[in-house]
Computed example of a mutant assay.
Amino acid sequence: MTLLVMVPPQRESTAGWAERLMAEVPGLTVARPSAEDAAWALREADAAYGVLPVESLAATTRLRWFQAQQAGPPPGFYYPELVAHPVVVTNMRDTYTDHVATHTLSLVLALCRGLPRYIRDQQTASWNPDWDPEAIVSLSEATALVVGVGALGTEIGRLLAAFGTRVTGIDVRPSARPGFADVLPVEALDEQLPLADLVILTVPHTPDTEGMIDARRLKLLKASAYFVNVGRGPTVQLDALDAALAAGQLRGAALDVFETEPLPDDHPLWRRPEVLITPHVAGVGPHEAERRFAVLLDNARRFVAGDTLINVVDKSKWF
């Protein structure tokens, strides 16, 4: 028998998963131990699901597969001991691409149509229409730069292209994508930033992307550009972004993820009228738990059968 341990604590949405996995995958035993019994269970585990702290990894003796419960786990997930361990790590990428892409388009449309201003006016019952054509960004005449063209970036580009937007991508593995005029290597980022009316960041948090949007790169943006981050918070230096907005180096921003979460209530970005903030909710939507279960089930079947797993992570790069 193959033993998979669901490492505590587990989300309420995973209740019943152990029984379902065992019913669907002959030869698989699934344990859902308490926190007190986790180390004992992990000693015999062939596979694990959830978050595996360094002390829990040290308790294992035969672990060969570890399924992360997120597409982009939080900072510290890929610690040195895990990277060095022979265990194969898989993640949950592409389980809520449609939700995040829809949220991203909501942010883009709100910025381009000036909705943050009107939302503020609504709070004070102020009838204050702005008829200046320059107050609006026409997507049919705009250029968007999508930084990170995985499943999420590809879907965002496809949706933007439907509005007539010219979409360029930047990716570590550049290749043609539907809706994109071009997808370029990372080395082209600095030359592309000054050309974009919209810069949309979808990249995961990795050693290479941490702090990639800094004061130097923010100075490369058009003063009329909007910046959107729906990837991971540590990729953007928030104080540098606030300073750039204060200096008029860009037109505005929309953020769903932050360098520090929750965003401290005294951070000046909360009070910037040209900034739209949502509290890391872009992935919210129906069927999220079932989609994650489907990935776990598929990989459990493959693991027991000795087949190649899906969503395998390059641990040294964290994605």
Score class of each variant (00 low, 15 high):
residue 156 I to Y: 06
residue 198 L to V: 06
residue 228 V to M: 07
residue 1 M to P: 13
residue 88 V to S: 05
residue 213 I to S: 00
residue 281 V to H: 04
residue 191 E to W: 11
residue 298 D to L: 04
residue 9 P to E: 07
residue 180 F to R: 01
residue 152 L to R: 00
residue 195 L to T: 14
residue 85 H to R: 03
residue 67 Q to S: 10
residue 120 R to N: 04
residue 270 W to Y: 11
residue 91 N to K: 02
residue 21 L to K: 04
residue 116 P to M: 05
residue 243 A to Y: 08
residue 18 A to H: 06
residue 306 G to W: 09
residue 307 D to K: 15
residue 200 I to V: 09
residue 284 V to W: 14
residue 277 I to A: 05
residue 155 E to T: 13
residue 9 P to H: 12
residue 77 F to I: 02
residue 309 L to M: 10
residue 221 L to C: 09
residue 230 V to Q: 08
residue 239 D to N: 11
residue 223 A to Y: 00
residue 170 I to V: 07
residue 29 T to I: 13
residue 134 E to N: 14
residue 47 A to P: 12
residue 263 L to W: 05
residue 63 L to V: 08
residue 150 G to E: 00
residue 67 Q to H: 08
residue 56 S to N: 14
residue 188 A to Q: 13
residue 62 R to T: 10
residue 181 A to S: 11
residue 34 S to R: 12
residue 129 P to K: 01
residue 124 T to R: 14
residue 50 G to I: 10
residue 271 R to C: 14
residue 261 E to F: 02
residue 310 I to C: 13
residue 58 A to P: 12
residue 162 A to G: 06
residue 246 A to E: 12
residue 308 T to F: 08
residue 281 V to S: 07
residue 245 L to Y: 03
residue 15 A to I: 11
residue 21 L to M: 02
residue 271 R to E: 14
residue 213 I to K: 08
residue 126 S to M: 15
residue 17 W to H: 06
residue 228 V to T: 05
residue 242 D to F: 04
residue 108 V to D: 06
residue 290 E to C: 05
residue 81 E to P: 00
residue 291 R to E: 11
residue 154 T to C: 11
residue 249 Q to K: 04
residue 264 P to W: 01
residue 205 H to C: 12
residue 69 Q to Y: 15
residue 221 L to V: 01
residue 178 P to C: 09
residue 163 F to D: 03
residue 77 F to S: 03
residue 262 P to R: 10
residue 268 P to E: 05
residue 265 D to G: 13
residue 33 P to E: 12
residue 277 I to H: 03
residue 232 R to F: 06
residue 160 L to I: 03
residue 112 C to E: 05
residue 280 H to I: 00
residue 211 G to L: 04
residue 98 D to K: 07
residue 293 F to I: 04
residue 291 R to C: 11
residue 110 A to P: 01
residue 228 V to F: 06
residue 219 K to C: 13
residue 273 P to L: 01
residue 234 P to E: 04
residue 173 R to S: 15
residue 299 N to G: 00
residue 310 I to M: 12
residue 19 E to M: 11
residue 101 A to P: 09
residue 261 E to Y: 10
residue 235 T to P: 04
residue 262 P to S: 04
residue 216 R to F: 13
residue 63 L to N: 11
residue 264 P to I: 10
residue 303 F to S: 05
residue 11 R to M: 15
residue 182 D to R: 05
residue 78 Y to V: 10
residue 49 Y to C: 01
residue 99 H to D: 14
residue 185 P to L: 11
residue 286 P to R: 04
residue 84 A to M: 01
residue 305 A to E: 04
residue 108 V to K: 01
residue 174 P to A: 03
residue 174 P to I: 10
residue 317 K to M: 13
residue 252 G to C: 10
residue 54 V to W: 15
residue 59 A to L: 11
residue 33 P to K: 07
residue 296 L to D: 02
residue 83 V to A: 03
residue 247 A to N: 11
residue 250 L to T: 05
residue 158 R to I: 03
residue 160 L to S: 03
residue 147 V to H: 04
residue 36 E to S: 14
residue 91 N to R: 06
residue 17 W to A: 03
residue 312 V to G: 12
residue 279 P to D: 09
residue 166 R to L: 09
residue 282 A to N: 06
residue 56 S to K: 14
residue 104 T to Q: 08
residue 318 W to A: 08
residue 284 V to F: 15
residue 239 D to P: 03
residue 201 L to H: 07
residue 150 G to C: 03
residue 308 T to C: 06
residue 142 A to T: 09
residue 75 P to R: 09
residue 160 L to N: 01
